[in-house]
């Protein structure tokens, strides 16, 4: 049966309809992406130059900023980590402090000399211009510290 032309035609037609089904998804009022059939909604929008980013960063005893790699902050990919941070920020003070403390605990266990220099962890919400940032001006337009906590054992 699997070697007949009729079988080949049936499988081909079904798969072709499935492959073309994202056309139907695109026609829907509410655009919802799917897997493994997609209409690639991320390509349809414009990414603004001005962006608010919630992130977790570190400071040494002298107040010098030390960026914290995402794996110390959340689990999973960059997008998943970003969403976990955003969710904590949206939930309010307690969730922000929890995120800060969890990061501090992970930093305490780190064997990296750079990470061990971190004395204070801050959860920050800041606005940047992507164009300025890429040209070297890394100062946020505005920024707000939402939570901060100390990393015990942080070295001066």
């Amino acid at each position: 049966m699997i070697r007949t032309r009729r079988y080949g035609l049936c499988v081909s037609v079904i798969v072709m309809i499935a492959v073309l089904s994202p056309v139907y998804m695109m026609a829907q009022r509410e655009l919802v992406d799917s897997f493994p059939l997609s209409f690639y909604p991320m390509f349809r929008g414009l990414r603004p130059d001005r962006a608010r980013i919630n992130y977790v960063t570190g400071y040494d005893r002298d107040g010098v900023e030390i960026p914290i790699p995402l794996e110390y902050v959340t689990s999973g990919s960059m997008n998943l980590g970003r969403r976990q941070i955003n969710r904590a920020v949206a939930k309010g003070a307690k969730a922000q402090t929890d995120l800060c403390r969890r990061t501090a605990v992970r930093l305490r266990k780190s064997s990296s000399p750079t990470m061990r220099r971190i004395f204070e962890v801050r959860v920050v919400s800041a606005e940047f211009y992507a164009s300025r940032y890429l040209r070297g001006d890394r100062t946020p337009m505005s920024s707000r510290v939402l939570a901060s906590c100390r990393v015990r054992g942080g070295r001066p």
Partner: peptide, 30 residues
């Protein structure tokens, strides 16, 4: 077919897109 279809061929959309992506990755520590 998206709202930025006119700007896509100019390269501005992809430039803004990549810049935004880079900003997020750098700030987040990815």
């Amino acid at each position: 077919t998206g709202p930025t279809w006119k700007e896509w061929p100019t390269g501005e959309v992809v430039r803004a897109w990549i810049a935004h992506d880079q900003l997020r990755k750098t700030v987040l520590g990815s």
